[in-house]
């Protein structure tokens, strides 16, 4: 029977079951249980070093858990070979924290790269697709620019265009607004919401420290503390919660159980 996410009531797209991960003696995930609903935006929040990025890398198969299972629908990612995992990655688009654009390529080639690598699309089709995506992210005409000529916000938007170029089922945002000024950050939030609205069925996972953005865009919020799921709920649930840990994190207060 299809598992439903208790927060959104939607079918579960990704499920983490008792996932453990350590780097040497440093334990990052300590039995994480987390459900990501299909077709919604899920935000994973938590302090730096609590394992948010590690959580994201596991679902791509870029890291394998020491213990536990991760399911993508019915498929067990932890039991897959590297070759099969690479195949699964075709279903994902990732927006990296610092965009991770290829320095040696211009904007056009950065966006078209996954198409050149994995499809037999003809050049005019690729040109049209790149132009359409650039228009969607508000960067028409920048095809020939190289990444060093772009501002931080522009780089992130090119990163988003690259992530969307193969029409992925899942899109993962790793701190998409880090390093942007409040206006650019708001524009990026808007772009994420528009992306979600314009692509019905796409499942988005956002890692962020930006509580304003999280509460604005997320259908579900998961709060990770010390490698474990501490709380999950809707944005309203987090906004109004009186739990000292949640309240301190949401309000960004220095007073509370979490120490600097």
């Amino acid at each position: 029977m299809e598992q439903l996410d208790p927060v959104t009531g939607e079918p579960v797209a990704i499920a983490y079951e008792d996932v453990h991960k350590a780097f040497g003696s440093h334990k990052v995930l300590c039995g994480l249980n987390l459900l990501i609903p299909a077709g919604k935006i899920t935000a994973i929040i938590g302090r730096s070093g609590t394992g948010k990025s590690v959580t994201l890398k596991h679902v791509m198969g870029l890291l394998r858990p020491d213990k536990g299972r991760i399911y993508l629908g019915e498929e067990d990612l932890t039991a897959m070979s590297d070759k099969k995992l690479r195949h699964v990655r075709n279903r994902f688009g990732v927006v990296f924290q610092h965009a991770a654009l290829f320095d040696s390529m211009n904007v056009y080639n950065n966006i078209a790269f996954p198409l050149f690598e994995h499809t037999r699309m003809r050049k005019p089709e690729i040109d049209a697709k790149v132009a359409k995506l650039l228009a969607q992210v508000g960067l028409s005409g920048t095809e020939q620019k190289i990444p060093s000529e772009l501002s931080g916000g522009m780089r992130k938007r090119v990163g988003l265009a690259r992530a969307l170029v193969r029409d992925p089922e899942f899109i993962l945002y790793d701190e998409p607004t880090t390093g942007l000024d409040p206006i650019l950050a708001a524009a990026m939030d808007e772009l994420m919401v528009e992306t979600q609205a314009s692509r019905p069925g796409i499942t988005s996972v956002v890692i962020s420290h930006d509580m304003h953005a999280v509460l604005h865009i997320a259908d579900k919020v998961a709060f990770i503390v010390d490698g474990l799921l501490y709380a999950e709920g809707t944005a309203e649930f987090f906004r109004d919660h009186t739990d000292p840990l949640i309240h301190q994190f949401v309000t960004g207060s220095l007073d509370g159980p979490m120490k600097v």
């Binding site: 791509m60 075709n90 994902f92 990732v94 990296f96 610092h98 994995h118």
Partner: peptide, 17 residues
Amino acid sequence: SMRVSEQIDALDAMAVD
């Protein structure tokens, strides 16, 4: 520099070995 700027992770994420 591709490693530290996550460009190698990006290749992996795009299913490019």
